[in-house]
Amino acid sequence: MDYFDLHVRFNFENYKESGFSRVGIWGKDLEGFEDNRRSERLALLESADSSYIKPRIKRCSLIHNPNYELDLGVIRAAAKHEKAFEVPVRPLLASSGIERASIIKRTRRFLTICNKLGTDYILTSRASNIYETKRPAELIAIGCALGLTYDQSLRAITEVPKRIMGL
């Protein structure tokens, strides 16, 4: 089975030893979305403002709202255009206590709505060094902590990233 981590922020050379078939390195395979972009790389549309996201959904590859805002219009549009939301694990690792509980709560609610509306999502590490990387088993375990079933977490690191990368 092929596992993917579509967003890491360092030159992760030994990704195959960690169990991944491909990783998306920021700046090389993945870049930020810009209105006049021309490159073929994957584009991550990241904004806390849903009204900024909605008109640009067709032209991006991945979407991330750091606040996990429950804008049903955006989530439905993402499902319609077969785009996926990115759920990075790094903010969970970097926080603790009530802040972490708050992030988990918002993410769980968001993922419940995504499952209900048939919108895809991927789990990524957004690691900036080797110690922040998470192997497939760990990403699946974190997905389960976010309210997903084992199969849903597995799909978020196998089928969906594969489709996004066009493989």
């Binding site: 969970l92 690792l93 970097a94 110690y131 998470k134 088993a137 974190i142 389960c144 902590a145």
Partner: peptide, 12 residues
Amino acid sequence: TDSVRSSLAFLS
């Protein structure tokens, strides 16, 4: 077991 595994994954 699943909860414990998730807890271990969060350790940094």
